[in-house]
Amino acid sequence: MALTETQIRQLEPDAKTYRCSDGRGLFLEIHPNGSKLWRFKYRFLGKQKRLALGRYPDVGLEGARRKLDEARQVLAGGEDPLAVRKLHKLVASFKAANSFEDVAKDFIEKMIAEERAQVTTDKMVWQLTLLKPIAHRPISEIKPLEILAILKALEKQGKRETARRCREFASRVFRYGVATGRGENDPTTILRGALIAPKVTHHAALLDPQQIGKLLRDIDCYSGSAITRFAMRISPHVMSRPGELRKADWSEFDFEAGVWTIPAERMKMRKSHQVPLSRQVIAYLRELQEVTGPDGYAFPAIHTSRKTMSENTVNNAFRRMGYRKDEITAHGLRTTASTLLNESGHWSADAIERSLAHADANAIRGIYNRGRYWEERVAMHQWWSDHLDELRGQGSAVG
């Protein structure tokens, strides 16, 4: 028999919980403490289930019946009302985390899950701190002027490139917010012409053969850490980016095959990269292994083998050797190799670009070239190491 409001008001608690049915699976559960709770009892895929529909009198009899009708409609559609409710709560909770900081952190976690390079995600965390004034604002309410104020403040500090990168990062966060249902648009799009274009700076590099030879001799005489000295010795030969080398693990080197395989997560283009190892580089690495041991990082920090050397270690060593930052940088050694290899006329531009791990504009052509130029690259790396030895020896012969 269906319940009435009068009956429900007159129900008194008992020593034990008991139920009063309203029909069609709807019942009121009366607890010893006096609570009266609406429940819907149903079966889904052969299993008995219960769905809470609210507390009386917050939800009256008519309200409970409306909720029952909605739940039965979901059930008739072949879905579990309890599972649908949990999903709706999850979505609501997700959408409630709608501040710029919430969305940005979700986006960074997505990048980490996709195994993007750690240096990239670390920079994103840093950029998020620079955007702190909008961090706790709902992402859908942030106006272009708010972002522009932050970026202009960075510009006034002379940080034009930082401002540009922060705008790019914010744009990616806003677009992710739209994609996940928490934002409505990307307010940074209209700011593209509002910032001063950063000056293009090139990494300082030595291009004169005599100066390169002197640098190599100075490296041999470096009196600091042996690990740093080996990093400086190897860098000119392998043409890798500084971060790719200093974070190298011994497991990446195959001395027998003469190959160093850099994993995708450490590469700028997110693709694994193979570097041919010349005889000279293998000899340097074997000597280095006697210092560090055969396992773990090839270039560990001085104070602990559980971390790699700092990103500034090699550049600081160059400064102690008397080289200014506008003369030579660790990254500039790639420019040295690229320039002299191209000027030699012995090697194809594609082979040189492959060794520098530059992206190919044509993806299919890039896959083809990786295999096609391997033998040429092996010969080129050996020639380059031999040439560096010649440059180093020329100065000592004159002296």
Rank of each mutant, 00 (worst) to 15 (best):
V74E: 11
F100S: 08
D102A: 04
L90H: 11
V91F: 07
A83W: 07
K67E: 15
V84M: 13
K95W: 06
K89P: 02
L68Q: 14
L87H: 10
L87V: 12
A104Q: 03
I108Y: 05
D102M: 00
A92K: 12
K67P: 03
A92C: 05
Q73I: 06
F100A: 07
S99D: 08
K110Q: 14
I108S: 04
R66C: 07
K95T: 07
K67R: 15
E70D: 13
Q73Y: 10
S99G: 13
I108F: 04
A96W: 02
A83D: 13
F100W: 07
V74Q: 10
V91S: 08
E114V: 06
A97V: 01
E79F: 14
L82F: 09
L75P: 05
F100G: 05
H88F: 09
E70C: 03
H88P: 01
F107C: 03
A83C: 06
K67M: 14
A97H: 06
A76R: 14
A113D: 12
L82N: 13
A96F: 01
K67A: 14
E101F: 06
I112Y: 09
G77M: 09
V91E: 15
I108L: 08
D69H: 10
A76D: 13
E70S: 11
A71V: 05
V91D: 13
A83S: 09
I108E: 03
K110Y: 12
E114Y: 09
P81C: 02
L75M: 06
L87G: 09
F107P: 01
A92E: 14
A113E: 14
L75E: 03
D69S: 13
K89D: 15
R85D: 00
L90E: 14
H88N: 11
A97C: 01
A97Q: 12
M111F: 05
R72G: 09
V84I: 14
V74N: 08
K86I: 02
L90D: 12
H88K: 15
L90N: 05
V103L: 07
L82Q: 08
E70W: 07
A71T: 08
H88E: 15
S99Y: 06
K105S: 04
N98E: 07
R72K: 15
V103E: 03
V103M: 03
D69W: 09
A76S: 15
D106P: 01
K89I: 05
E101K: 14
A97Y: 00
A83F: 09
K110C: 12
